[in-house]
Design a protein around this nucleic acid. Structure first.
Lengths: 239, 239
DNA sequence: CCAGCATTCGAACGAGCGTTCGGAACATAC
DNA sequence: GTATGTTCCGAACGCTCGTTCGAATGCTGG
């Protein structure tokens, strides 16, 4: 952090002045620190609002290092999101696999299907080994503008959606398929809102108990009850 | 739209060359066109992603006109959001007023409380007189970074939240108050997700009926059924 | 017709952006 | 030691950003 010299920039003859500056030698660590910083800043300020310089400075490295490892700012965003969504997708599939194996040919228990969908995202959110700024990155996935996000969103979610639609249909055999698809969107809305941390952002009005200190387990339980009841609610007849 | 001259810019002695260029003379119209363009572009690309130049060009005016009318880019965003949220807030309050007047001292019917909360936002969404790009501006309110949004969000939502929490408590007298507060957040999540237009963004997988053509009335009906059932679902006992 | 005001514009300013590039520091293989 | 490849950095390149400013335009009241 030495003061830069006031010398006018002579483009060709830069004097060698770096003496004893410790060079990092662990590329994996650099990449991780970049991903951590990107996750936090993209979540806080959005993709366009967080500059590459701010991210790399928070990671304790340089803009050129970020480009060396990821190639572009957009690629860094994709890597940031993928690092978090990949384990969630895998855990969901694994829990659903176990559920279907256990059920055999019988109808799937609805609450357990919902838990297979919701619990992995809470588990990833609470992982202590990395900063828990996972929070809003999921919400960004649903609202951030860069076009590449749209494709990534479909890729990330599409793999899971088909399987859970089938699982919900097996749990609720009499429910019309269009209604299942619509209700799944409601479920996603609830999930995104909670995962994004909006519970903490909205202080409840005077006279109402705060939600900000609620344990994840309580919120998850109530979400499952709430959504299960919604899914079971019969359709009103339309003319 | 005449071609700009290739004359090198002489800063002091600009020759008078504008002949017959029609000047607009209706400031209200200019403001409206700016708000329309800002709404669309902020929704599509986010606040940081949509440049003032892009907005003013889409509005058929100049960057300086935007500054003249609104003062700053951020103030333009606030005006854009306020123009849309104001009527929704008022309509919600009016519907709830009518509902409480009709009920007298009796318990409020839950489905009608939910309709008072949800219908106004659908109505604003479908207004034909202005571009219907209201869609994602509401979702942005919940995820966009500029700090001013946080205050605006609380102001916009806080006014409504307290009234609807009370109304829900009157509709479900036996329900614990913390559970009401939590369930209202779930309701908000569903509302934001649907209003933001994510139904159209996620094509349903093969073999599942599409949701993109569903009439608003069908979606609104099902939302009310879904959320009402969730709100009525009894709490599971915790150890 | 002329003064005063509201409205709009083009041009410029300084700052910050993502990206590129040459080279320094380090590790390894010969 | 020397050659080679990986990892990282500082500096610079264009470019676009939000904002400012002086001037031009048309309207209104005398």
């Amino acid at each position: 952090m030495t003061e830069a010299e006031r010398v006018t920039a002579s483009p060709a003859a830069a004097p060698i002045a770096t003496d004893g500056a410790p060079r990092r030698r662990n590329p994996e660590d650099t990449k991780e620190r970049l991903l951590d910083a990107a996750e936090r800043l993209f979540a806080d300020r959005g993709f366009e609002g967080a500059s590459l310089r701010a991210v790399t400075q928070a990671a304790g490295t340089s803009v050129s290092a970020a480009h060396y490892h990821f190639g572009s700012k957009e690629a860094l965003l994709v890597a940031t999101i993928r690092r978090r969504t990949e384990p969630v997708i895998k855990a969901r599939a694994a829990q659903l696999d176990a559920l279907e194996r256990r059920a055999g040919g019988a109808a799937l228990p609805l609450e357990e299907v919902l838990e297979a969908f919701l619990r992995p995202i809470f588990a990833e959110r609470a992982r202590p080994d990395r900063g828990d700024d996972f929070r809003r990155i999921a919400a960004r996935l649903f609202s951030d503008p860069p076009p590449i996000i749209a494709a990534l969103k479909r890729e990330v979610f599409g793999r899971t959606a088909a399987r859970f639609l089938d699982a919900l249909a097996r749990a609720l055999p009499d429910k019309p398929r269009q209604e299942i698809a619509l209700d799944l969107q409601f479920l996603v809305g609830v999930m995104v809102h909670v995962t994004a941390g909006h519970l903490e952002d909205f202080p409840t009005p005077d006279g109402w108990p705060s939600l900000s200190g609620l344990p994840d387990e309580v919120v998850l339980d109530r979400m499952i009850q709430f959504v299960a009841a919604g899914l079971r609610a019969p359709a009103r007849s339309h003319s």
